[in-house]
């Protein structure tokens, strides 16, 4: 495709991203830096503030479908699941708007989502994070990293690797238009296990990657190695997802009272 086609593609992907993903990096950064006119997020830093947040201050309802639990680690685990499930729903709608995606076999669309959504989520999570914590509940709450670290094992191990990734990833200073193409490239990945039409997926991903490369040259002209750095981040994200899947398996095995949302069960089953 020529330059103007790639620009059109970048624009389509960017529009789809802004339309379907509820929290943009732009909005998150303005909340985190206190530059927004809306009220600052409620800070959750211990058990008391968590229950205050749960009593309607931050979340309007208890984690839907999650059984009531007094154990704080388990509770946080359910909250993570709720957010993940909601984001998978948004990512699915985003994927459908990426040119070429709906032309794929339905089974290939499923495969791409199964393997891609967690990588995509961990690529978007840094937008909500700084080194001290992360925004939750659509920006209404801020959970401190220290609080998440203080949970008992294995729950304390859920978010820390994502913070470590986020600090490095945020140094690249991507904006929503870069992230839109980056996330689209993650979803349209040709080497997911079990794809029926690899060529077709590779062709779509290739177009997205070319659009991303061109977009970065214009949007980050001072950062020459940004494109290869992002390709490396894709590999890092795959590793992060593998570790996350192992941790979820461990929680399932050792924490017999916890349950996994049916959608997440589907995604994790026979994943890696």
């Amino acid at each position: 495709p020529g330059g103007s086609d790639l620009k059109t593609l970048a624009k389509q992907v960017n529009t789809a991203y802004l339309k379907n993903l509820s929290m943009t990096k732009k909005r998150a950064r303005s909340i985190l830096s206190g530059k927004t006119s809306s009220t600052s997020p409620f800070v959750i830093y211990d058990v008391d503030t968590l229950w205050k947040a749960e009593s309607g201050l931050v979340w309007s309802q208890l984690a839907p479908g999650a059984p009531l639990t007094k154990e704080i680690g388990v509770h946080v685990f359910y909250r993570c699941q709720c957010t993940t499930v909601e984001t998978v729903r948004e990512l699915t709608e985003f994927a459908k708007c990426i040119p070429g995606f709906v032309d794929l076999f339905l089974n290939d669309q499923v495969t791409l989502l199964k393997y891609g959504v967690h990588e995509a989520i961990f690529a978007m999570l840094p937008s909500l994070m700084n080194k001290d914590g992360l925004l939750v509940a659509n920006g209404k709450g801020f959970v401190t990293r220290e609080f998440l670290r203080s949970l008992r094992k294995p729950f304390s191990e859920i978010m820390e690797p994502k913070f470590e990734f986020a600090v490095k990833f945020n140094a690249l200073e991507l904006d929503d238009s870069d992230l839109a193409l980056f996330v689209a490239a993650i979803i349209l990945c040709g080497d997911r296990p079990g794809l029926m039409n690899v060529k077709q997926v590779e062709q779509s991903q290739d177009n997205i990657l070319q659009a991303l490369d061109l977009h970065l040259q214009a949007n980050h002209s001072d950062s020459v190695y940004l494109f290869p750095k992002l390709l490396q981040k894709m590999a890092d994200l795959r590793q992060l997802v593998t570790e996350n899947a192992q941790l979820v398996q461990k929680i399932k095995k050792t924490e017999s009272e916890t349950s996994l949302h049916p959608l997440l069960q589907e995604i994790y089953k026979d994943m890696y």
């Binding site: 909601e86 998978v88 699915t92 459908k96 339905l106 499923v110 199964k114 959608l263 589907e266 089953k269």
Partner: peptide, 20 residues
């Protein structure tokens, strides 16, 4: 197909929120 029932559902319905 049965193995990924909810993903199929999400891909095919744009309005149904799926019972979360």
């Amino acid at each position: 197909k049965e193995k990924h029932k909810i993903l199929h559902q999400l891909l095919q319905n744009s309005t149904s929120p799926v019972d979360l």
